[in-house]
Amino acid sequence: MTLIRTIWFYLLLIPATVIFCLIAIIGGGVFKSRAVCKWVERNWSAFSLWVAGVRVDADLSALPEKAPVVFIANHQSDFDTFLLFAVLSRFPLIFVAKKSLFRIPLLGPAMLAAGHVPINRENSREAMKAMNVAAERTTEGFCPVVFPEGTRQRDLTRLGEFKTGGAILAIKTGSPIAPLVMYGPGLALPAGRFMLGKSRRVTVRALPPIEPGAYTLKQRDQLSNDLHDMMSAVYNDLASKHTGDA
């Protein structure tokens, strides 16, 4: 059954991705329409989760009502972006994503057209420039999404080590930090694998926002560590309550 679902998933996802990317490139890149990009993000993510058979249980009651907000989320799977576009559809999101994604034909130009920010984490100077771009977008009302682990985690027993880029971004902008913890996407589509997993139930929980004004740039490591500690506690709780197959 999993094999059939996987074949079905890719047979529909690939042509749909081509269509959605072309719409984003034309709408966002040519006509500079954020509304078109927002439509693409919302519908592409909803379609992708539906085709994969992913069930989402999201508790977002702790989120603030207004943007801008800096979202800090753990990273398990290629599904993470779809999940966040779906559950955070009322926010104007921009992802700070690894530079290699922007080299993918159609997908890369579509991401640039939608205003997402490439980051080269191997070069600290370039990484800081990317964070400055994201900070500028925040002043325009956008909500950056940062995966502080930097890459998808294969070990689902714990959160990976957090890099400080998200903490620096939040401190620079002065925007509230909204930590988001996800459990399940790494089981639905494990990192480094093409085959869907048997478990496709995903849980997303928003933690109470943190005001970064309590931290200075010199305390970015402390902020990053505090985020890791509070998100780890929630992650472990979600893992213990995971119900398995959707």
Rank of each mutant, 00 (worst) to 15 (best):
T173I: 03
F194R: 14
A35F: 10
R154S: 14
D57Q: 07
E149P: 08
G166V: 08
H242R: 02
G28W: 00
A52V: 09
D237C: 03
D237G: 04
R154K: 15
L63Y: 09
K32A: 12
F79C: 04
A62Q: 13
C143K: 07
R55G: 05
A58R: 02
P92E: 00
T151I: 12
V40R: 06
S77W: 12
I94E: 05
T157K: 15
M182W: 03
F79T: 03
K129M: 08
R158V: 12
T2F: 02
Y235V: 03
A113F: 07
R121M: 06
R5Y: 11
A110D: 09
A52K: 01
S45P: 08
N225W: 02
P15H: 05
V56H: 00
S240W: 01
G174K: 03
A73E: 05
L180I: 15
M111W: 04
Q76R: 13
G186D: 03
M1I: 11
L196H: 02
A67S: 15
I104Q: 05
E140P: 09
S124L: 14
F91K: 12
R34I: 10
R5C: 09
D229E: 14
F95V: 05
L12V: 13
G141N: 07
R193G: 10
M230K: 14
P144A: 00
T17H: 08
T157P: 09
Q222W: 02
P118K: 01
A67P: 15
L101M: 12
I72H: 08
R125T: 14
F71T: 04
R34K: 12
W50C: 05
L207N: 05
R158F: 10
K218H: 11
P64M: 02
H75I: 03
R55P: 08
R154E: 14
I7K: 01
D229I: 13
Y10A: 04
A134Y: 03
S89I: 01
P185S: 06
R137Q: 11
Q76G: 11
Q76D: 09
N120F: 09
T164D: 02
A127S: 11
G197C: 09
V146D: 04
A246R: 11
T216V: 09
V51K: 00
G28F: 00
R201D: 05
F194P: 07
K163C: 06
T138A: 12
E161K: 15
K198R: 15
R201F: 10
E126F: 06
E161Y: 12
F91L: 15
A170K: 07
S48N: 04
E136W: 05
F142A: 11
M1D: 11
V40K: 02
L223E: 03
F71H: 04
E140W: 14
F82C: 12
N225L: 14
H228G: 06
N74W: 02
K172E: 13
K172L: 11
A46Y: 02
A73F: 07
P208R: 00
L12A: 09
I26A: 13
A191K: 12
A206Q: 07
I168S: 10
K218V: 06
P179N: 03
Y183V: 01
A188W: 05
V70A: 06
S240C: 04
D59G: 13
R5F: 07
G213T: 06
F91V: 11
G197D: 04
M195C: 12
I119K: 02
T138G: 06
D78P: 11
P179M: 02
V117M: 07
A113G: 10
L22Q: 10
L207G: 12
P109T: 06
N74R: 06
R42A: 15
K66V: 13
